[in-house]
């Protein structure tokens, strides 16, 4: 089943996930007339007796970002794996880029995954490949891109994350922060329509974490990719939500406080005991009176 969708970038309709306007039996629910790039509909997943997600529903519109917060084991990373079809839900429906991935055969999922980039917690770079080969993996191995074009794109994304000088190094020769940035470069090399970040700053010192946060903001604002960010690092989550990347007159990238429109394009989702305890903008999160959320934010 294929639901044709166009690829609109960020619309003018900010705000929390809008209520459904339509739910057809085959296609994803429309939100404000737009087809979401991700739609979860009452998704449940348990590992043996441990219910990780219970009746989770949310949508992500094109060009937007959702930041998933929650305690360890609350199911944040599981959501990303469900999006990619690396895990299958026990119940519920999942649409990614208009396709039902929860029932899709593994072979067909490859086409969906080719439009999604994922940054794993520790980078998950391939040990036996150089930085250049890691970054260009999808282009060299899976795409039909001419080699010189693939090389040019690899140089471009390595320059984007500031690691051009490290192209011929092996992953073992990189620092933790550099590995995460290479992982971001690898994920964005094939120009995916959406990026998934799984705890991209965990275990990094604050300065290195900031460089990774800036890459996330750059990819969102300058490349226009939609994104899901899973983290429990509040400082990083708030930085990503409250800043935007712009190019200065000299084309240098600058990070400035986000405009009201930009602020509304990043939403927070708080997971608690398998369910969604909060969903809204950064301002709504700051104003919340919920005791659990207040405790988490403090």
């Amino acid at each position: 089943m294929t639901v044709p969708i166009d690829t609109p970038r960020a619309s003018e309709a900010p705000g929390p996930t809008a209520p459904r306007e339509d739910t057809s039996p085959d296609g994803p629910p429309l939100v404000d007339g737009e087809v979401p790039v991700i739609a979860f509909d009452r998704v449940t997943l348990a590992f043996d007796d441990n219910v990780v997600l219970q009746d989770i529903s949310f949508t992500l519109l094109p060009g937007r970002m959702k930041v998933f917060l929650g305690a360890s084991g609350s199911g944040k990373s599981t959501i990303l794996r469900l999006v990619l079809g690396l895990l299958r839900p026990d119940a519920g429906r999942i649409w990614v880029l208009g396709e039902r991935v929860d029932v899709m055969p593994e072979a067909d999922l490859m086409a969906v995954r080719s439009q999604v980039g994922m940054i794993f917690q520790d980078g998950a770079l391939f040990d036996s490949l150089t930085v250049r080969e890691n970054v260009g993996y999808r282009l060299f191995q899976e795409g039909d891109v001419p080699e010189d074009e693939a090389d040019a794109r690899v140089d471009e994304v390595l320059g984007f994350v500031g690691l051009s000088a490290f192209a011929d190094r092996m992953p073992s020769a990189l620092s933790g922060g550099q590995r995460r940035r290479v992982a971001i470069a690898r994920a964005m090399a094939a120009r995916p329509r959406m990026l998934l970040y799984d705890e991209p700053t965990t275990g990094l010192d604050p300065i290195t974490a900031m460089t990774v946060d800036q890459e996330i903001v750059k990819v969102r604002d300058l490349e226009g990719a939609s994104g899901l960010l899973v983290t429990h690092q509040l400082r990083d989550a708030f930085f990503v939500a409250t800043h935007e990347a712009v190019r200065g007159p000299d084309q240098a990238v600058q990070f400035v406080p986000a405009s009201a429109e930009r602020l509304a394009r990043t939403e927070f989702v708080m997971l608690k005991q398998g369910g969604i305890a909060f969903e809204g903008t950064v301002d709504a999160l700051r104003r919340t009176e919920d005791a659990y959320l207040r405790a988490f934010l403090s």
């Binding site: 794996r81 990619l84 690396l86 593994e106 072979a107 490859m110 086409a111 995954r113 080719s114 999604v116 980039g117 994922m118 794993f120 917690q121 520790d122 998950a124 770079l125 391939f126 040990d127 993996y137 999808r138 191995q141 899976e142 690898r186």
Partner: peptide, 17 residues
Amino acid sequence: SMVVTDQIAALRALGTD
């Protein structure tokens, strides 16, 4: 090692079986 460091999951995420 590739399984425990998520490299297998990364392969699948990159569209490789």
